[in-house]
């Protein structure tokens, strides 16, 4: 079975771009707090989702709808509506994290295929078996803390599909278990579907260059001409133990392209590309490149051939293979 390429779509235009560039599946979310990329101006209305799914299906691609935040106490209606709208629109699966949302989906939408979001941080056979047995989860997105060897062992011990991130933004923290953003700003992925929200980001210039502040906390400083990272809290520069460093993570993005064959051998079903907040140009380029790489691997291509296909993406970028190689830890 060939690897499935799961690609991001922050907007209907990005969905069309991803499908045309060769995505087997596209994932997207509604324009509200039910999904973990709740950035201003992004995401889909229920009508746009219907239209997007029609387009994807007409081109032989699937659409997975991320409803992967934790429902707000006393206000679960938005999450219930998201599940109902996803099913009505003909979504091929929904990607969930919250016990309450999973429970509701399993009870009220028995025909809807359930995937477990990386936000649920299920990293052991016991936890995965629990989600599969209890809610009928069919696929689990691997937490970005596991090495390829660990994924292989995990896949041998479970009987659901697994999906692994291979490209894009990288959380050094275990996703779904991080409150750094709410400590600084009051908003976080689990609470509101955003991390380091743009409305709390401010740049200010002084004698020492430009400071990037997140709700008043300086998360980095740049001299003139120095490249800036996206102002995410955990990718900032801090002082600890007398040293100034990118303590949590360097401003790099994940690129596990060189590990596609190894991940396939480790039993991964699907490869996921991060970036619902990225533009059409980015989506098109990355999806096209990964699709070519996946096909080359299917055709028994050598690592050299695959490496050549991906060279354009790797060159000049600041990238890491993340936790997939144990040295990252």
């Amino acid at each position: 079975m060939s690897l499935e390429l799961v690609c991001p779509a922050g907007t209907p235009a990005a969905l069309r771009a991803a499908v045309e560039a060769g995505a087997h599946s596209v994932y997207c979310g509604f324009r509200d707090e039910t999904n973990a990329r709740n950035f201003p101006g992004l995401n889909f209305s229920p009508d746009e989702l219907v239209e997007g799914i029609r387009f994807a299906h007409a081109h032989g691609a699937k659409v997975l709808v991320a409803i992967n935040t934790f429902a707000k106490a006393g206000a679960m209606d938005a999450w219930k509506a998201a599940l109902a709208n996803a099913e009505k629109a003909g979504a091929d699966a929904v990607i969930l994290a919250d016990l309450a949302v999973l429970d509701h989906a399993a009870t009220h939408h028995p025909d809807l295929r359930l995937h477990l979001s990386v936000q649920a941080a299920a990293a052991t056979p016991e936890a995965i078996a629990f989600y599969a047995d209890t809610f009928g989860v069919k696929r689990v997105v691997m937490p970005r803390v596991l090495s390829v060897e660990e994924i292989a062992k995990l896949n041998a011990a479970i009987d659901v599909e697994t999906e692994a991130f291979v490209f894009g933004g990288l959380c050094p923290m275990t996703e779904g278990r991080c409150s750094l953003s709410s400590y600084a700003t009051g908003k976080s992925p689990n609470l509101t579907g955003v991390c380091s929200p743009p409305e709390h980001v401010a740049y200010s210039e002084d004698r020492n260059g430009t400071a990037t502040r997140l709700n008043g906390f300086t998360i980095d400083r740049f001299g003139a001409g120095e490249q800036a990272g996206y102002p995410t809290l955990c990718k900032g520069r801090f002082m600890a133990g007398g040293k100034t460093s990118y303590l949590f993570e360097d401003p790099v993005s994940l690129n596990a392209a060189s590990l596609i064959a190894a991940l396939a051998k480790a039993g991964i079903t699907a490869l996921k590309i991060e970036g619902r907040q990225r533009g059409k140009g980015y989506v098109t380029e990355v999806v096209r490149t990964f699709r070519a790489a996946v096909e080359a691997i299917d055709a028994g291509g050598t690592e050299v051939e695959v490496g050549r296909l991906l060279a354009g993406l790797v060159e000049g970028g600041r990238q890491t293979s993340g936790a997939y190689k144990k040295a990252w830890r």
């Binding site: 937490p143 970005r144 923290m173 991080c178 400590y183 949590f248 936790a323 990252w328 830890r329």
Partner: peptide
């Protein structure tokens, strides 16, 4: 102190130039 986040990576080791293992 509030427990805010967990990671696969050890920050004490990283700060001291060591590997988690």
């Amino acid at each position: 102190r509030l427990p805010l986040a967990l990671s696969g990576r050890c920050y004490h080791a990283r700060l001291h130039g060591l590997h988690k293992d």
